[in-house]
Lab assay of single mutants.
Amino acid sequence: HNLTITQGKLFFHYNPKLCLSEIHKMEEVSGTKGRQERNDIALKTNGDQASCENELLKFSYIRTSFDKILLRWEPYWPPDFRDLLGFMLFYKEAPYQNVTEFDGQDACGSNSWTVVDIDPPLRSNDPKSQNHPGWLMRGLKPWTQYAIFVKTLVTFSDERRTYGAKSDIIYVQTDATNPSVPLDPISVSNSSSQIILKWKPPSDPNGNITHYLVFWERQAEDSELFELDYCLKGLKLPSRTWSPPFESEDSQKHNQSEYEDSAGECCSCPKTDSQILKELEESSFRKTFEDYLHNVVFVPRKTSSGTGAEDPRPSRKRRSLGDVGNVTVAVPTVAAFPNTSSTSVPTSPEEHRPFEKVVNKESLVISGLRHFTGYRIELQACNQDTPEERCSVAAYVSARTMPEAKADDIVGPVTHEIFENNVVHLMWQEPKEPNGLIVLYEVSYRRYGDEELHLCVSRKHFALERGCRLRGLSPGNYSVRIRATSLAGNGSWTEPTYFYVTDYLDVPSNIA
């Protein structure tokens, strides 16, 4: 807008934040220059609390790290170098490059900038070799853009010569660093050979998330399962459950009422301010606690030095998902009996873990797994792929695949051998790939016309006998059925096997 004052003059007093240069501009645009008398524009009460600059400061050096910015700028000295009290560095987070010096300023003089007072450097006698002032900004957020400017702080001049310097606002972004852990990993099994893994992005990506790394490792069953005799009275049979499938998407929606109208769909109840505040506090606490764990609990591995020492970490090797089922080394339970199943799973520490690289999504279907087997899954978020990966501390989750139908069934015939004193040795093959492992066998036998009897055969007993022995049988026709019990439950009964026990007292003698 054009402003013209045809008559009258300007009068400025007691404006401590208004620089004289701005008042002189007002004289020019209003056409009143030359009308004012000496005392109409006070030299001592206008701009006496402001830094009124008329020179431009330029930054000469900028260096960044993930949490620091090192700045240096060209030296500046007023005509009387004693008038320079120091520099004021202003900075704040700036997602967009549209910041002005006066953003967030209120009537009390406060604003949204963080201000650092910096002492002037030592003055050199040689004007050509003056030290460049600077400042190291610490405690910054990774991968965050900051708006920065600097200006001088000078003393009051009796001659009211307006001098000083100020830089333009520059924008500097800190470097990326390792992201925080992925949030809320959930693993479920939808079949006997697959596990579905879902997660949420890290709360602090500290860069642009480029991919996720998912490692999985087959877990050995508890050692007590191999040692305890679950045929003993009072000892509860062990059981394991597989990871249940995901709930429906509708039930997972946030901010939804727990109660549904019987007449149909209901609208979600909005969260109160107290609920939102509580969630923010919980989120802040979780982030602080995660940072504490990362800094205190997890110790970084030592990389190899120039002395030739090897990095103890196993090298990563990509495998196809079809090879995942046989990740671990199978060892027989008892070496003397080769027909026992290889369900003991000690994992070799030198073995390469299978892994998958996930790009542009937060889910993965891990296939080719062994049925009813526990897996430990390790999830890392990465925001750099080359020249070397920059990934987060791992988040861990466990899951067990679903049982395989008929995996616990005894394959092959049940054979028998009759000894003296009416002892019958029953023999059968253990299931080759049971659900988890076989903890015991149930032997059901009966003599024709009598009630059915049951015998429990422990895992250890089966390994020693290759089956079991029935003792003290009365003469007669017998039928026997056997079924295995694994961590997933009972298998199917075998087809009945028949044998006849004679009275050993009636056996004919070869003595003449």
Rank of each mutant, 00 (worst) to 15 (best):
D385W: 09
Q384H: 07
S284I: 09
L232I: 13
S257T: 08
H416F: 11
K236G: 09
K253S: 12
D273G: 07
E420D: 08
N435A: 05
P338L: 09
N422G: 08
L369I: 03
C456T: 06
S223H: 11
E442Q: 05
R286H: 01
K361V: 07
F419S: 05
R316Y: 06
C382R: 01
D222W: 13
K357Y: 13
V443C: 03
V296C: 15
G322T: 14
P312S: 13
R218V: 06
R483F: 00
V443K: 02
S342K: 09
Y504S: 10
V507I: 09
S444D: 15
A395C: 11
S479C: 05
R240N: 15
I377Q: 01
S248I: 13
T502R: 12
L232E: 10
S474R: 07
V331K: 13
E452F: 13
L440S: 02
P332A: 15
P475T: 11
C456Y: 05
T303K: 08
L487C: 09
K271C: 10
S315D: 12
I482N: 00
R313W: 15
T494P: 01
S262P: 11
P244C: 15
E388G: 11
A381F: 04
S344K: 12
S474L: 13
R370L: 14
S315R: 11
V414W: 02
K302N: 11
V443T: 03
V457K: 03
K236M: 05
E430F: 10
E227Y: 06
D291F: 03
S262V: 13
S367R: 09
V480S: 03
A394R: 11
S283D: 05
A463T: 12
V365T: 03
A405P: 02
L473D: 01
G368F: 07
R469F: 13
P431E: 00
A395P: 03
Q252L: 12
W428Y: 05
H454D: 12
E388W: 08
V297P: 02
V299T: 02
T340Y: 11
F298N: 13
E442P: 00
D250K: 08
D408A: 03
K253P: 07
Y230F: 12
L369V: 09
N360Q: 09
I438D: 02
S203Y: 06
A220G: 14
V359M: 13
R218L: 13
N421Y: 11
R447L: 05
V359K: 12
A395G: 09
E281T: 03
C231K: 07
S257P: 08
L440N: 00
E247A: 11
S486T: 14
V345G: 07
R390T: 05
P349T: 13
S223M: 14
H454E: 15
W242V: 08
T307L: 11
N295H: 01
S251F: 06
F372N: 03
H211L: 04
C468H: 06
G467N: 01
I377P: 03
D506T: 14
N435S: 10
P238Q: 04
R313H: 00
E290D: 04
D273K: 10
E221P: 13
P434F: 05
G436F: 11
F462V: 08
V324W: 13
S486C: 04
L280H: 15
T386R: 12
Y445A: 11
P244F: 12
R466G: 15
C267T: 07
G234I: 12
E310W: 01
T485Y: 15
E282D: 15
P403R: 04
F298Q: 03
W216R: 09
S304F: 14
K278D: 06
E433S: 15
A263C: 08
E290K: 03
S304C: 06
S474K: 10
C266R: 05
R313G: 05
E362V: 15
E260L: 11
E265P: 12
